[in-house]
């Protein structure tokens, strides 16, 4: 059962009142409460306040009203960064999940060597967020890089994929799709939960492969697809390392790899404009929240719960 199912259920159920252990619970949760106050919810609240100020860490914060939030609507580099980020999220996540589901279906049901394949496809997910792989990407998609050497073997003339603003983002999308192994494992676990009798009954009735996928696999797997979708979208919005390393921290060429997070980093930690960075952080929270809310709303039309 996933965290999302849990949230869904939480809204419905009531708890039976039993003997309470408030004192013990307080001590067991003490570190977590402190973390909530100082590291997670506390800072979120604080950043809302900072959003109304001009603050560079040296002079004390100065109240400037809604200026920072107003700037969000006029900052053209930010609008470009939003475009880059949306493109990245909306292209790479569906592609990644399509790969994950496709390969998971190939690996399902007693395929020989399953464990081996699963490991091979999963390994890139563990490596994908590292600086080392981002550095490797810089080389292989460079003008003199490995990809172009391979293409040359087939007589294709390549180009500097990362130095060209038209293709730089695509190399990062490829990198994200490359890490389809983690959602694939979640799909594999989900496929295993579908009772084999459904398929057997369908086979007796002479139902074709596509229909079986469309009318058995897809509906029964939809909660898992939903879970992966929500998670990977939130995850993709937070991509930072790859764009940072590939562009040398600039988001270039011509801001074509300027992820939202990278822009926020530059405002906060290169220019030390903490007020604007806080406003940007809140705006990001709103965007991710909106995407997640839309996802939950849309779920009622396509996600099928068996329970």
């Amino acid at each position: 059962m996933s965290a999302l199912d849990e949230l869904r259920r939480l809204r419905r159920s009531g708890t039976a009142v039993r003997k309470r252990d408030n004192k013990a619970a307080f001590w067991f949760l003490a570190p977590w409460f402190a973390g909530l106050l100082f590291v997670t919810i506390g800072p979120v609240a604080a950043s809302f306040g900072l959003g109304f100020t001009k603050y560079n860490l040296i002079q004390p914060p100065k109240f400037i009203g809604l200026d920072n939030f107003g700037r969000i609507f006029t900052d053209e580099r930010l609008h470009n960064a939003l475009g880059v980020t949306f493109t990245y999220v909306l292209v790479s996540v569906p592609l990644q999940l399509a790969f994950a589901l496709g390969v998971a279906m190939l690996l399902d049901r007693g395929l020989r060597g399953l464990a081996f394949y699963r490991s091979a496809f999963y390994l890139p997910s563990l490596l994908g967020s590292s600086v080392a792989i981002a550095v490797l990407w810089t080389q292989i998609f460079g003008a003199e890089g490995m990809v172009n050497r391979v293409l040359a073997l087939f007589g294709i003339q390549g180009k500097g994929w990362i130095s060209d603003p038209d293709t730089a983002l695509s190399t990062l999308i490829v990198l994200n799709v490359w890490t389809f192994g983690a959602p694939m494992i979640i799909f594999l676990a989900g496929l295993r939960q579908i009772p084999a009798v459904y398929y057997e009954a369908a086979a007796i009735d002479g139902v074709g492969r596509w229909s079986r996928f469309r009318h058995i696999t897809l509906p029964l797997l939809s909660p898992i697809i939903f879970f992966n979708l929500v998670l990977q979208i939130i995850h993709a919005f937070q991509s930072f390392t790859q764009a940072f390393v590939v562009s040398g921290g600039t988001g270039g060429p011509s801001d074509s790899t300027m992820f939202y997070t990278l822009y926020l980093y530059q405002q906060g930690f290169s220019r030390f404009d903490m007020g604007y960075a806080s406003a940007l952080a809140w705006f990001l929270l709103l965007i991710i929240g909106a995407f997640t809310a839309i996802n939950f709303w849309a779920a009622r039309f396509w996600v099928f719960y068996d329970d």
Binding site: A3, E6, L7, L10, T15, V17, R18, K19, R20, D21, N22, A25, F26, L29, W32, L36, V39, T40, I41, G42, P43, V44, A46, S47, L50, I234, F237, Q238, F240, T261, L264, G268, M274, A277, S278, A281, W282, L284, L285, I288, T292
Partner: peptide
């Protein structure tokens, strides 16, 4: 069992999805 358990649990689940970028400045 403790007072407000469902609330706290909900908050805990919510923080799973809280991006580091949102809290990093403060």
């Amino acid at each position: 069992e403790f007072t407000g358990k469902r609330w706290w649990f909900g908050i805990m689940l919510g923080t799973i999805m809280l991006p580091i970028h949102v809290i990093i400045v403060p």
